[in-house]
Design a protein around this nucleic acid. Structure first.
Length: 275
DNA sequence: CAAGGTGTTGTCCA
DNA sequence: ATGGACAACACCTT
């Protein structure tokens, strides 16, 4: 379930703990998480030096000083830990990397996730197909409008598609739309300029607020500490049957395409006034 | 206890 | 371009 705020929190911590460290050993017990064979990944990492860690959407990348890069995606909720902060036995972490300074990185994959070794030439992995990061400073309101221009589908599926904007998942999408007063199934062409501007500001406010708190409280960081962003902050997200945090109307759960969604029927009319 | 929902991504199909 | 179905098979709630 990690989305942009949780990934960004981890990337910042990994940058502090691991950037500049030389990799001394790599053990993998779950080969399907790799984009190459275990031997190939081990050969490509051991002896190399990790560069700065950067988040892009739900992916984390660290270029290697000798060329190429390490790319990590946590899928539906993996755990990433420093070895000294591991709570379980090492065997429970299917990817284990050790560094010369005595540190390292353990990853326990839950459903699935990815550790990719990239050769750095581009066009080789999922990261190359990502849209702009949702908190990229270059994504101002005008750029956000430009992304939506000419698009025809529903707004929620657009926001969840990482090729359009990277970092938004179902967890934050519920309130991003509710706080903007937009029904998830609204066709993009039906959105008023004012609604798009509101959605842009809400997206930045919501994600930045969670980043400032270290991400969602059900996720744990590199040290095993939970984030400070509680879902009690949501006005509709995961509040089925409870009053909407804005108007008090009862929140309902609906199907929004292939994902479940939570909406306030009053704040998010399917057919907006004047539309 | 068994069944079902859930979060992500890529691929395939209409 | 768009979305739906599906696969990857862990873990919690019902």
């Amino acid at each position: 379930m990690p989305e942009l705020p949780e990934i960004r929190t981890l990337a910042e911590q990994m940058d502090r703990e691991l950037a500049g460290s030389r990799i001394t050993a790599v053990e993998v017990d779950q080969e399907k998480c790799l984009n190459r064979s275990v031997d190939s990944v081990r050969r490509g990492l051991v002896g190399r030096t990790l560069g700065p860690f950067e988040a892009h959407g739900k992916w984390i990348r660290s270029p290697l000083a000798e060329g190429g890069a390490l790319a990590i995606n946590l899928g539906m909720g993996a755990e990433v830990r420093l070895p000294r902060c591991a709570e379980e036995t090492p065997e429970n972490y299917k990817f284990r990397m050790h560094t010369a300074d005595g540190g390292g990185l353990f990853i326990r994959f839950w459903w699935f996730g990815h550790v990719h070794l990239l050769d750095g030439t581009g066009g080789e992995g999922p990261m190359d197909r990502l849209g702009i990061d949702a908190l990229d400073p270059a994504l101002d309101c005008g750029a956000f409008r430009a992304l939506l221009a000419g698009r025809r589908g529903g707004i929620k599926s657009f926001l969840l598609n990482q090729k359009n904007i990277a970092g938004i998942g179902n967890f934050y999408a519920h309130d991003l739309l509710a706080r903007s007063g937009i029904h998830p199934m609204r066709p993009i062409p039906s959105l008023e300029p004012g609604e798009i501007g509101c959605m842009y500001r809400t997206m930045r406010d919501l994600l930045e607020a969670s980043v400032a708190l270290g991400g969602a409280d059900y996720e744990r960081d590199l040290y095993g500490r939970p984030g400070g962003f509680s879902r009690r902050r949501f006005i509709v997200g995961y509040r089925e049957g409870e009053p909407c945090g804005r108007c008090g109307e009862t929140v309902v759960k609906i199907r929004t395409g292939s994902t479940p969604g939570f909406i306030c029927p009053d704040c998010q009319p399917e057919d907006p006034p004047g539309g």
